[in-house]
Simulated scan of single mutants.
Amino acid sequence: MDKHPFDIDVALARIEDAVRPWPKAALFLLAEEGFTSTFEQLLACMISIRTYDEVTLPVSRRLFARARSPAQVAALSWEELDELISPSTFHERKAKQMLAIAREVSSWFGEVLPGERDVLLSFPGVGPKCANLVLGVACGTPVISVDIHVHRVTNRWGYIAAPTPEKSMVALERTLPQEHWIDINRLLVPFGKHICTGTRPHCSTCPVLDMCAQVGVTEHR
């Protein structure tokens, strides 16, 4: 089939409609539930690392029901915090890192963690993907968070060509209009989970098939 030139504005508008029936990405859904502070979003993002959203959401809610502010989390013992987040992958290490962050934030900043990238990246266990996602969701800062879904989908489209999520972030910063920098993660996480899947993507029902180059797709549904 002949393909149209890829139009990112059209593509994201179509995907917005296509993913409406599916659950939103974890941090965006938590923000809608009122967990909007930079500190809360940072803890939820750390919980989400190597962990499915289906686990991240209830674990984050359980933690926030017990402690939400830096001082409240800092007052927990490691054992208490570890138990609260135990369904999350690598929970022992995350509990140690989160406790250290809570104590540092409480000591240096009080109850409000600044929405500054350098501050977030200074914490143990926080990398560029997590920092950018927190800044985008909690602060509305125009930054791109590239997880495996954003990386796979944008490269499959042929919109960019980059071998790793880190290099995809750089390529998207050069190519993607800034007004889409936050929404690209919000939309492509459910799109990548349910339509443009890692193996045998659902190309027959894809809303952007007419523009997608289908790079690397050898079998689809």
Rank of each mutant, 00 (worst) to 15 (best):
G127R: 08
P177S: 03
H4G: 05
L63H: 03
A13N: 15
V170G: 09
E92K: 13
S88Y: 08
G127S: 11
I184H: 03
S86D: 11
G158K: 01
K129C: 10
A213W: 02
E219D: 13
D7A: 03
Y52Q: 15
I15F: 04
V208F: 00
H202E: 04
V143N: 09
E79A: 14
M169W: 06
C130G: 11
F109P: 00
H220L: 14
G198F: 04
I85L: 06
I85K: 07
C212W: 02
L113C: 04
D2Y: 07
I182F: 05
L57R: 12
P114R: 11
S168G: 12
P190M: 07
G192R: 09
T154K: 10
L30W: 02
L120R: 08
S37V: 08
D118R: 14
E173C: 05
K167N: 13
L57T: 10
K94V: 02
L172N: 06
K24T: 01
K167D: 12
T38P: 09
L12C: 07
R174G: 02
W22C: 01
E32C: 03
T218S: 15
L120G: 11
I8D: 01
L84A: 07
P207T: 06
A95L: 08
A213I: 01
K96G: 13
Q178A: 07
V119R: 01
D53F: 11
W181H: 13
G34M: 11
P201A: 05
R62Y: 04
R186M: 07
K193C: 01
R117I: 08
V119E: 01
A102K: 03
V150E: 00
R186C: 01
D2L: 05
A13Y: 08
V134N: 12
V112H: 15
T218A: 14
V150M: 02
D210W: 09
I47Q: 02
Q97K: 05
E219M: 06
P5I: 11
V59Y: 09
A25I: 07
R50G: 07
T199I: 15
Q72V: 05
A131H: 10
C130E: 13
I15W: 03
A161S: 10
S168F: 08
F90A: 03
G34W: 13
F35Q: 06
A67H: 13
E104M: 08
P190R: 07
P21S: 00
H194N: 08
V73W: 04
V153E: 03
L135N: 13
P21T: 00
V150L: 01
A26I: 05
P5V: 09
V105T: 04
P114C: 11
G110H: 15
D82W: 13
